[in-house]
């Protein structure tokens, strides 16, 4: 008889990549619900369409690369990319735009580097940035809350019929960016729809994502380091550069924490292990970097929101962060940092 030869350890823990991905999907639910409640079924429609597209792209590329299709489709990473993209893109974005974002995310964000685990950039953010730069008009078309119904939305997405004028509305970040003369209070007074903190809508969505993120943190899907770093840095930066409610104000710390894609970024994007730093210390630095960059671009850059750019920039810096944040190995006096190349 020949018993199997298996390397130790024979016992294994219960966490599995697939389950991690499933939990991430579950954690997006509050945000998805908030978006749907505020803006109608656009995000949901996008999500379904993009999931299908992402799986299709993934299967096609795997086939092309002669990898086991069923095995890798099952890991759920394509689905997570699609869902995160769908949550980040404006609801009612036309179908070809979402398709393009999806394609770029899967093909150029992930598979050109060797597939799951090999990509230096966050795939969802790659797809997002590509469409943001290519189709700025469509990308700024966020609907006003409770403005669009299911059928009209579908027609808009499919490009059959355009929505009536005025359905879209500049976001609070856009308005703040474009503002030249009004004080903050005046600005808010002019736009009652913005609500209280991060802009009506945005603040609820951000709070929902925060809830999902805390759920994941509780389930120990990731450490607190990266999100805390990002939110902390963003908070500090906005506090530091907050000059009251002048007309050239950059907005309050709360405004920054609860508007745009802050919470989505902090809990769903910055925590991406593949493209981030590897050690806990590194992740803290990574998160801080993202937080600072988000504020810098929002306040002084050319775009109203900046999570995608900040994340991609920090992705570039991740290997360097790893380089300087290697832990001290047991029995060594100090950590050997940096890579030894040759002799």
């Amino acid at each position: 008889m020949a018993l199997p030869r298996i390397t130790s350890p024979h016992a294994t823990g219960s966490t599995r990549t697939r389950q991690v991905m499933q939990l991430v999907l579950v954690a997006t639910l509050p945000g998805l619900l908030a978006l749907t409640w505020l803006y109608g079924f656009g995000t949901l429609l996008n999500l379904l369409w993009m999931s299908a597209a992402a799986l299709g792209f993934e299967a096609a590329v795997l086939q092309l690369r002669q990898r086991p299709v069923g095995f890798f489709l099952g890991d759920g990473s394509a689905l997570v990319t699609a869902v995160l993209l769908a949550l980040a893109l404006p609801p009612y974005a036309p179908w070809w735009l979402t398709l393009t974002a999806c394609g770029f995310a899967i093909l150029f964000g992930k598979h050109v580097y060797g597939g799951l685990g090999q990509n230096p950039f966050n795939p969802a953010m790659v797809g997002y940035v590509v469409v943001l730069i290519s189709f700025p008009l469509e990308m700024t078309a966020w609907p006003a809350p409770h403005a669009v119904g299911l059928v009209e939305g579908l027609q808009q997405i499919l490009g059959i019929a355009a929505l009536p004028d005025g359905w879209s509305q500049a976001t609070a970040l856009d308005v703040r960016k474009a503002n030249r003369s009004l004080t903050m209070d005046e600005l808010w007074a002019q736009n009652p729809a913005f609500g209280y903190l991060g802009g009506r809508g945005s603040e609820w969505v951000n709070l929902a994502f925060l809830a999902g993120g805390l759920f994941m943190l509780r389930r120990r899907l990731f450490g607190w380091h990266a999100p805390a770093g990002m939110l902390g840095a963003l908070f500090l930066m906005s506090l530091l550069f907050w000059n009251g409610s002048d007309s050239d104000s950059n907005g309050s710390p709360l405004f920054h924490l609860l508007s745009g894609a802050t919470m989505l970024g902090a809990f769903f994007i910055v925590t991406d292990p593949v493209s981030g730093a590897t050690s806990n210390q590194g992740r803290l630095i990574f998160g801080i970097g993202v937080g600072i960059l988000v504020y810098v671009i929002r306040a002084w850059g050319g775009y109203p929101d900046a999570v995608a750019f900040a994340v991609l920039l920090m992705n570039l810096a991740a290997p360097t962060i790893d380089y300087f944040s290697r832990p001290r190995t047991y029995g060594h006096r100090k950590a050997e940092r940096g890579f030894k190349v040759g002799d």
């Binding site: 016992a11 599995r16 292990p273 593949v274 590897t278 806990n280 992740r283």
Partner: peptide
């Protein structure tokens, strides 16, 4: 009781191994 290991997926650099390593190594690297 001790099921055979499922086929491995690519490493996603989650860092769980580095957190568990008693020698403070970077197992994924």
């Amino acid at each position: 009781e001790l099921p055979p290991p499922p086929p491995p997926l690519p490493c996603i650099r989650c860092g769980a191994c580095a957190d568990a390593c008693p020698a403070s190594l970077l197992p994924q690297q």
